[in-house]
Structures are given as structure tokens and as C-alpha cells.
């Protein structure tokens, strides 16, 4: 008996993953697997569900609203990720210099990421109000009133405005990762390239950017993941409107769920999963070979 306890005791370190795995298994893996089953039924949360095979998945490709939500989500991610990275990197390069007060500026620039995206959305909804919003009067007072419009009610601009708000909020987050990456670049590399006669842009191109690959990878992946899950900002600013012009996958899934299309919404959720995993996987593969080359 003692030796058994002793054996357990000395091997305890091998099982330290178990509590985490168990919790994640219960709250994520188990529902995910169950979801695959539900997606093949006509479940509506009330009556007994019937097995209908892949009908929900076929239905998705005939559903213009669902396809629109998918396109909006992709548009949002493809618009947000490059902007976040360009501005995030520019911010980081600016704030990486030895200058007084940079810690303070970094903190302030990061701050918007602390606000709940929902509240951020409400704030911008208020700023963007036609006639009575903040931006309307700023433009009026600058004699740029002709630029004013009802951006959030116009289906051609609403999603772009939401992208801008997202970038505004999370540029500090992206910046922090780049700053961390910049601090890991050894100074000798810069000195060597200076001796070789490289100017600022050449150093950026041949030293900084290649050395930042791990940071770029993390940022692009987290930005894409975050963007594809976008929910709160849109709920606060347009609730998916006008019409369905800004409806994202998450919002569509939630609406279907509340509309008792439980089976269908789960099928759409699984399609969303595939849509997210494939580009991220391709990107990770592509950057992996890039790093090998270096």
C-alpha cells in the first residue's frame, strides 16, 4: 500500500496536465463533439430532433443571409488584420526610441484595449451620430461639413467604420507585442548593418522586419482569430444592420439560436470553425517555411 502511494507521489508530475485537460474537455471538447451531432438534426430546442443528415450544411450554401454574414466576417478580418499590423508596427517603431516619457505614452496607447469592446462600440456609435454626434460638429467647425454622412446607416460605409473602431481599439495590443519583439533584436545587428552602409529603410527591411517574424506571426494569427469572432463592437454599433449589411457570423449564429433554428445554427458554427482554421493553418505553415529559410 505504501509503495503504491509512493509510486503515485513520485509520478504526480506526469499528470499535472489532467485538471486542465478535464476542465477543457467538459466545457469545450464535449460540447464541440455534441455539436457535430446536433448539426445533423432539425433541432429547434423544443420538439424532439430528427436526424436530417447534411441538409443544414446544404441549406447554408442556399442561404444568402448566411453567406453574407460569412463574407462580412472575412471582409472584416481581411480589413482589420493588415491595418492593425501596419499601425501597430509603426507605433512600436516610434515608441522603441530612447525618449523621455515613452513608458507613459505606451501605457496610454494601450489603454483603449482595456475598455470592453461593447462599450467602445457604444462610444463610437455616439461619436458617429448624424447631426448631433461629436464628429459631425468637429467636421462642421472645420468647414468640412460636406464630408458628413450617416455612416452607420449606409450599408457601403458601415462595415468600414466598424473596422476602423476595431483598429482604433486594438492597435495598442498589437504594438505591445511588436515592442516585445523589437527588444529581442540584438543591437550588434544594427551596428553591423550601419557599418555596411545601410540606411534606416534598409535596416528596417533587412534587419528589423526579418527579426520580427515571430512577433508578426503571433499578431497576424491573433488578429485574424479575434476579427473572425467579432461580436460586441457590431452589436453595439449597428446590431448587424442596416439590413444584414454588417451581420457577422457570430451574430448570425446567435440570431439563429434565438430563432429556434438550433440545428442550423450549430451547422453554421461548424462551417465557421472550418473557415477560421484553414487560413490560420495555411498562414502558420507558410511562415514556418519562411523561418526555416532564415
Amino acid at each position: 500500500m505504501y509503495s503504491l502511494l509512493n509510486r503515485i507521489n513520485t509520478r504526480l508530475h506526469l499528470f499535472m496536465t489532467v485538471p486542465a485537460a478535464l476542465l477543457y474537455g467538459i466545457f469545450f471538447i464535449y460540447p464541440l463533439i455534441q455539436g457535430i451531432g446536433i448539426s445533423m438534426t432539425d433541432s429547434n430546442g423544443v420538439t424532439e430532433p430528427n436526424f436530417i443528415g447534411l441538409q443544414n450544411f446544404i441549406e447554408f450554401f442556399n442561404d444568402d443571409r448566411a453567406k453574407g454574414a460569412l463574407m462580412n466576417t472575412i471582409y472584416f478580418a481581411v480589413g482589420s488584420a493588415p491595418l492593425l499590423n501596419i499601425f501597430g508596427l509603426a507605433y512600436a517603431l516610434f515608441l522603441d526610441q530612447n525618449i523621455r516619457g515613452r513608458t507613459f505614452i505606451r501605457t496610454i496607447v494601450y489603454m483603449p484595449a482595456v475598455i470592453s469592446p461593447l462599450i467602445m462600440g457604444y462610444i463610437w456609435y455616439f461619436i458617429m451620430q448624424p447631426q448631433r454626434g461629436f464628429l459631425y460638429h468637429v467636421l462642421e467647425s472645420m468647414h468640412l461639413g460636406f464630408l458628413n454622412g450617416n455612416w452607420l446607416a449606409d450599408s457601403s460605409t458601415a462595415l468600414n467604420v466598424i473596422i476602423m473602431v476595431n483598429v482604433w481599439q486594438f492597435v495598442g495590443m498589437t504594438m505591445i507585442i511588436y515592442l516585445a519583439g523589437l527588444q529581442g533584436i540584438p543591437g550588434e545587428l544594427y551596428e553591423a548593418s550601419k557599418i555596411d552602409g545601410a540606411g534606416y529603410l534598409a535596416r528596417l527591411r533587412y534587419v528589423t522586419i526579418p527579426m520580427l517574424y515571430p512577433a508578426i506571426k503571433i499578431n497576424v494569427v491573433t488578429n485574424i482569430i479575434g476579427s473572425l469572432a467579432v461580436f460586441e463592437i457590431i452589436m453595439a454599433m449597428t446590431e448587424g444592420g442596416p439590413g444584414y449589411a454588417t451581420e457577422s457570423m457570430s451574430i448570425f449564429i446567435m440570431r439563429m439560436m434565438y430563432g429556434s433554428f438550433t440545428g442550423y445554427s450549430t451547422a453554421v458554427a461548424l462551417i465557421m470553425f472550418v473557415v477560421i482554421v484553414i487560413p490560420v493553418f495555411i498562414f502558420l505553415r507558410a511562415t514556418k517555411s519562411k523561418e526555416m529559410e532564415m
Partner: peptide, 13 residues
């Protein structure tokens, strides 16, 4: 699974 938005499992959850 880090890449999967939480909303995906909401119904079974």
C-alpha cells in the same frame, strides 16, 4: 482549439 471562437459551442454548452 485556441483559434475557435467560443460562440461555436454555445448550443450544446
Amino acid at each position: 482549439c485556441m483559434m475557435i471562437p467560443a460562440i461555436i459551442v454555445t448550443v450544446p454548452l
